[in-house]
Design a protein around this nucleic acid. Structure first.
Length: 500
RNA sequence: GGGCGGUUAGCUCAGCCGGUAGAGCAGCGGACUUUUAAUCCGUUGGUCGCGAGUUCGAAUCUCGCACCGCCUACCA
């Protein structure tokens, strides 16, 4: 970022100018940003205290409270006023009178602005209409706000501004608050799930000398002291499996991955993944565990195993379908009979109408994958495991015992989107070395997403990786599902945006 | 990357067939001691995203650019 962008724009806005004037006047009388006010209650705690108590009871036994928050609404009626403040727990109405506060404080309050941060102390009571409020005996301005809030009724609706100035979105749109609380609860619930089962949470490098564990273009950076190129990680997978080699047999990490690819409603350059590994288990176990996990977090976060996503009901309560690609293609597209989907010529003919690259070297597995992606993926609205991915596209997964052309792998689809990817891990170092060689060849041939040959990882496998099952779950997409958010930007506090 | 749509006051939005800028909220001044998006009276505030073009005249029509949104492609 250059100097000019760092400099605040000179603001000629009239409202800001008037507020700056008010701030100047406040400075003349002391510090307009004092930090010696302490609250005793959150807004929600006041509401809990007053719950079920009528006017008479509150008057007979008055509870005191000191609260603080942002001034959101203000209704001045001569010598008495109502104001609504908002803190992290919610809102509370204040009743502010000249008689209780004295003329100078009351007159000052009349010139405070929506958006100012205030502290108030007083006693609880109920208004004529029954709203629990605070009869204020002490009132102070704690932070002067210089810029006007978004419109008090409509809130902030400009999506761009919601993303760029998330604080305004959070102040004025309760749904934004709700969404990010749910996201936080989701991550909390996942952590609890794994900790309760004896998994150890770890952190592995975000900056890696070789980016591995996924097929994706990485971000590149440079370390000056070591004078070496480093990559922001595209996945933690290879490090977590090194830890399983090291004896951490149940391990998980919830952290950021970085992929230097497109931005869309489903993609942000940095996104959060859960990855977990458990020794002496296989991919069948992972599918059972995944169902259990999703049910548990859905109930903890939303209270229900049935969700609504963009008008569609998603039921996490029923056992998830488990289909091979061919089975899924046939089920969701009756025009493709299942028995034909094992024939390469049939698959090539079926793919011809689609505008995608098909190579002469593509085997049945790859052809099925391409047809699956074109015709079926988006139709997997209810939770569905797709199993038995081709070995060619699964360089870290264990081969199936009966059919070495496919792997013991699954991907979970919900709302037509990939939510999870898991497999029995490839723990044969020689097979892994061979697969890395194929990836390295593909990279040399121009495939930018192909993997590097990771000799250090092979060395770790040569020490012996126990039979292990491992899985990754995209937290942002799960958060979208649970919060009914149409865009990944709605569940990332500060999504990547072009500079203004 | 491609297609479609959007950009007007701090915010939410009108602005028709081209005639020179509007409302509500917020702000400012006034009235009002139980309001609920308080109400009532008065009032300030605009390089209509940026740049060209057409025209006597452009917020409005045309072209280009920027940013955003949606769809689409790659991907999780």
């Amino acid at each position: 970022m250059n100097e000019e962008q760092q400099q605040p724009q000179p603001d000629t806005n009239q409202i800001v100018e008037e507020r700056r004037g008010k701030l100047r006047a406040l400075r003349a009388h002391g510090n307009p940003f004092p930090n010696d006010f302490r609250r005793t209650h959150l807004a929600s705690e006041v509401h809990v205290l007053g719950e079920g108590k009528d006017c008479e009871r509150l008057e007979a036994d008055p509870s005191e409270a000191a609260v603080a928050g942002r001034l959101m609404l203000k209704r001045v009626m001569g010598k008495a006023s109502f104001a609504t403040i908002q803190d992290m727990s919610g809102r509370l109405q204040l009743y502010i009178t000249r008689d209780a506060l004295g003329e100078s404080v009351y007159d000052a309050f009349k010139h405070w602005d929506l958006g100012d941060i205030v502290g108030a102390a007083g006693t609880m009571f109920r208004t004529r209409t029954g709203e629990l409020s605070l009869k204020v005996t002490r009132l102070r301005l704690l932070s002067k706000s210089l810029r006007p809030l978004p419109e008090k009724f409509h809130g902030l609706t400009d999506q761009e501004q919601c993303y760029r100035q998330r604080y305004l979105d959070l102040i004025s749109n309760p749904e934004a608050q709700r969404t990010f609380r749910m996201r936080s609860h989701l991550i909390q619930a996942m952590r609890e799930f794994f900790v309760a089962r004896g998994y150890l949470e770890v952190e592995t490098p975000m900056m890696q000398p070789l980016p591995g564990g996924a097929a994706a273009r990485p971000f590149v950076t440079h370390h000056n002291a070591l004078d070496m190129q480093l990559y922001l990680r595209i996945a933690p997978e290879l490090y977590l499996k090194r830890l399983v080699v090291g004896g951490i047999e149940k391990v998980f990490e919830i952290n950021r991955n970085f992929r230097n690819e497109g931005i869309s409603t489903r993609h942000n350059p940095e996104f959060t993944m859960l990855e977990f590994y458990e020794a002496y288990q296989d991919y069948e176990y992972l599918m059972d565990l995944t169902e259990e996990l999703l049910r548990e977090v859905a109930v903890k976060v939303t209270g229900n195993v049935k969700l609504t996503y963009q008008g569609e009901t998603i039921d996490l309560g029923k056992p998830f379908d488990r289909l091979t690609m061919a089975q899924a293609i046939a089920r969701y597209n009756p025009r493709y009979p299942l028995h034909e989907l094992e024939k390469p010529e049939y698959l090539r003919a079926a793919l011809a109408p689609f505008d995608i690259e098909v190579f002469p070297t593509d085997g049945v597995g790859l052809l099925q994958l391409k047809l699956f992606e074109q015709t079926t993926e988006s139709k997997l609205v209810q939770p569905t495991f797709i199993v038995a991915h081709p070995t060619d596209v699964s360089p870290l997964a264990r081969r199936n015992e009966g059919d070495p052309a496919v792997t013991d792998r699954f991907e979970l689809f919900i709302t037509g989107r990939e939510m999870a990817n898991g497999f029995s891990e490839l723990n044969d170092p020689e097979d892994q070395a061979e697969r890395f060689r194929q990836q390295a060849d593909a990279k040399a041939a121009g495939d930018e997403e192909a993997m590097f040959y990771d000799a250090d990882y092979i060395r770790a496998l040569e020490h012996g990786l126990p039979p292990t099952a491992g899985e990754g779950i995209g937290i942002d997409r799960l958060a979208m599902l649970l919060t009914d958010s149409p865009s990944i930007r709605d569940v990332i506090l500060f999504p990547q945006m072009r500079p203004e």
